[in-house]
Design a protein around this nucleic acid. Structure first.
Lengths: 141, 141
DNA sequence: AATTTGTCTAGTGAGTTGCTCAAGATTTCG
DNA sequence: CGAAATCTTGAGCAACTCACTAGACAAATT
């Protein structure tokens, strides 16, 4: 039931990028050094965030990465879903990636007893993470 | 961010055992068949729950497993922690298995920005799962 | 003693995690 | 233009975890 290093690194990298939002770009090695993240691994993360539309990048000598959405628009939930997949603790209660359980004897019946509890957990997690924006961390370094 | 099959199977097995609580014992193959769980895998789960004090067992001809705590006393949180480990999404916010993050630059400083959010998530999950007892599912088959 | 159960330990194949490496594309600067 | 700096892409890999299997063993019942 843990988040991966990928999410953790991704969030820490975004915290750095928040601090220079609107200003200069940051290069991978700057972020990596400040946040203590293996640079090549960080790169994959930054690229995933770029493909998801959170970051822009420029190659070449004065290249680097920068946020293209404002910190108020980016939630922890978004970031974690990009890097770690759906938040739901079991897929039969996921809203973004629902899947019927294959082997559960309750799957066919009107209501699975576990589904209700797990649904509540999913909602609680999503409620927190989808309302936590990066701006809430700004300059809290 | 998912729970394992182990937890899911464990909870489903406990639902069966709730139904016969106070009455007869259930054998592994009965539970396995009804809940569609590979019997040898289920066994490991039942043994873990036994070692944790939730179940008793008897060997031999009329052997089997039975709950030794009442369904009101067993919470989903307990079960999941036994089978899946701590609930916290990152170990630096776990109450049952705290560990300082090694590489995080915020680890030393008074407050890590992510820790607050993750702590809230942990509390939300624990609040739900530690208050959901097995008795809430009884006879909802 | 034979059978039926649970107990324990180890193994195993597939997939994931966390990370590394190397070749290539793009931009800037001299 | 050419060299250097940077991002880009894709492959590879060791270690681990997950979900399960197998087999020898212990105890209870008949």
């Amino acid at each position: 039931m843990k988040f991966s290093k990928k999410s953790e690194y991704g969030l820490r990298a975004l915290l750095e990028l928040c601090d220079t939002y609107g200003g200069r770009v940051l290069q991978r090695h700057e972020i990596a050094e400040r946040q203590n993240i293996p640079v090549e691994f960080l790169e994959q993360i930054l690229l995933a965030l770029k493909r998801a539309g959170l970051l822009a990048s420029r190659r070449g000598v004065r290249g680097g990465y920068a946020l293209i959405k404002s910190p108020e628009e980016i939630t922890l939930g978004q970031v974690i879903r990009i890097l770690d997949g759906p938040l739901a603790p079991i897929s039969c209660v996921s809203k973004t990636a629902y899947q019927k359980c294959a082997d559960c004897p309750y799957a066919a019946k009107p209501s699975c007893p576990l589904q209700q509890a797990m649904g509540e957990v999913r909602d609680a997690i999503a409620n927190i993470l989808d309302h936590y924006t990066l701006s809430r961390f700004a300059h809290s370094k």
